[in-house]
Design a binder for these strands. Structure first.
Length: 452
DNA sequence: TCGTGTTTAGGCAGAC
DNA sequence: GTCTGCCTAAACACGA
């Protein structure tokens, strides 16, 4: 990032303005009973909010940019239609920084939704363009601009659990990305391949007393750490891949994001290392619910379906309602779905998550203790190595829990636990996230160093 | 049989 | 040009 001082000043001003907007909105929403519990917290943190540094204050941006393939979901008046479609939760749902408690439904961002945001969202309101042309959940023609690893992570986050079965990953993806419902099922092979090959994912063997096939998967804590540190190189995914079979139906929408907004986003992401998949142009097609013109990527080398090897298309894409899912997995999947409250989301964004003080998290004490404050931290090995703990489930679990705050918004819970518990999932504020003020992390010391 | 998991191979594209 | 990450495809083994 090469942000100038002028930019920084502007950014700070924007943030202060944002806080003011947030306060205003909060006051306007006092009649919302769901708000009441948070108001005190929020108001008690007004000062800190206003005096926040830019990194903290930009949390809303992080919430908005890195988590949701679709940006904010529709406001309540549009929820019904989405919920009527058996809306699954989105990755946003599980993210502590976005309120943590509300499973979100990927949906089309709308002007109404944006207008409810506490302050102008760079790149959205700023240019006054809120296209709603792409809804990955319902649009079968556009391939999500996320890597499989990202999709897996999203599914894991949305699951609100520390581990997730392969079938649930499939289901989450097909539920949230219509493209995959109609795509050649070979993408599932890619998912499996990714899980096996990608160091980010750790297999959790299924217990013998647990029915079902295969094991569970979770994110390697190291992955979360690298996420935070921004160690991963930026790589751009093709923002869209048009389903050839549906390409003819597409109608690209022109869209522009003003340069300042893009810069603002970039600054934030570079500050937080949250830019994993961020691409301003990509953002146009995801966060803003549209796709960039002239960025249709023809990277596919796949021959036409007719030329595919025999048997490669034998099976159709699986659906979330697949009877192949065992009861347990259906239960598990249940937590991936559900309605959410936009008001609550926004309110939460205005209250708990923006605060730096006080444990807002309903995470069980023992789980909280397993964060950076905990002692059961087993530092990851050298980059690239999954380490021996990969083969030690117990150790893995401890390691995972120890850094759970970094990577999983879900509450560690047993599979037997019924769905819906995630509604109490914690929120993790930036203080937790970056361990601000934590004595374990000294000045100039990175979280990794502290952990090591 | 089918789902799952692993491994290998090759190609593409962005970053360096 | 090389490195790296990602995607795709395929083959194989294992277990429910």
């Amino acid at each position: 990032m090469s942000a100038s001082c002028e930019d920084s000043v502007g950014l700070e001003a924007e943030l202060l303005n944002a806080a003011a907007h947030a306060e205003e909105l909060d006051n306007n929403n006092n009649n919302n009973s769901n708000n009441n519990n948070n108001n005190n917290i929020f108001q008690s943190n007004q000062d800190s909010l206003c005096l926040d540094d830019s990194l903290t204050s930009l949390q809303w941006l992080q919430e908005f940019s890195i988590l949701g393939p679709h940006g904010p979901s529709p406001p309540p008046h549009q929820q019904s239609s989405l919920l009527g479609q058996e809306a699954p939760s989105s990755p946003l749902a599980a993210d502590p920084a976005c309120g943590g408690c509300m499973p979100l439904t990927p949906g089309k961002p709308t002007s109404a939704a944006y207008s409810r945001m506490p302050f102008p969202l760079p790149g959205i309101v700023a240019h006054g363009h809120c296209p709603d042309d792409v809804d990955y959940r319902t649009n079968p023609a556009v391939k999500p601009p996320y890597s499989y690893a990202t999709l897996i992570c999203m599914a894991m986050q949305a699951s609100q659990r520390s581990k997730i079965s392969l079938s649930c990953i499939y289901s989450w993806i097909t539920d949230n990305y219509c493209y995959f419902r109609h795509a050649d099922p070979t993408w599932q092979n890619s998912i499996r391949h990714n899980l096996s090959l990608n160091k980010c994912f750790i297999k959790v063997p299924r217990r013998k007393d647990e029915p079902g096939k295969g094991g569970f998967w979770r994110i390697d804590p190291q992955y979360a750490e690298r996420l935070l540190s921004g160690a991963y190189k930026k790589r751009r995914m093709p923002p869209v891949q048009i389903n050839p079979a549906l390409q003819g139906r597409l109608r690209p929408a022109p869209l522009s994001v003003d340069a300042r907004s893009q810069r603002l986003l970039q600054e934030f992401e570079e500050a937080t290392g949250a830019e994993q998949r961020w691409d301003p142009q990509l953002a146009e097609g995801t966060m803003l619910g549209s796709w960039p013109v002239s960025r249709v990527v023809g990277r596919k080398r796949k021959p036409p379906p007719g030329c595919r090897a025999p048997g490669s298309q034998a099976k159709g894409p699986r659906r979330s309602s697949s009877p192949l899912l065992c009861v347990e997995e259906q239960k598990e999947l249940g937590s991936l779905k559900g309605s959410f409250d936009w008001d609550a989301l926004l309110d939460s964004a205005l209250s708990g998550d923006l605060s730096l003080d006080g444990p807002l998290s309903p995470i069980p004490k023992e789980d909280q203790d397993l964060t950076v404050h905990g002692t059961q931290i087993f530092p990851a090995e050298a980059p690239g190595g999954r380490g021996a703990d990969r083969h030690n489930p117990d150790l893995e679990e401890e390691t995972f829990l120890a850094t759970a705050f970094l990577q999983c918004p879900w509450v560690e819970e047993e599979v037997e636990q019924g769905p819906g518990d995630y509604l109490c999932t914690s929120t993790v504020n930036l203080e937790q996230l970056f361990d601000l003020g934590d004595p374990l992390v000294g000045p100039g010391e990175t979280l990794s160093e502290a952990l090591l």
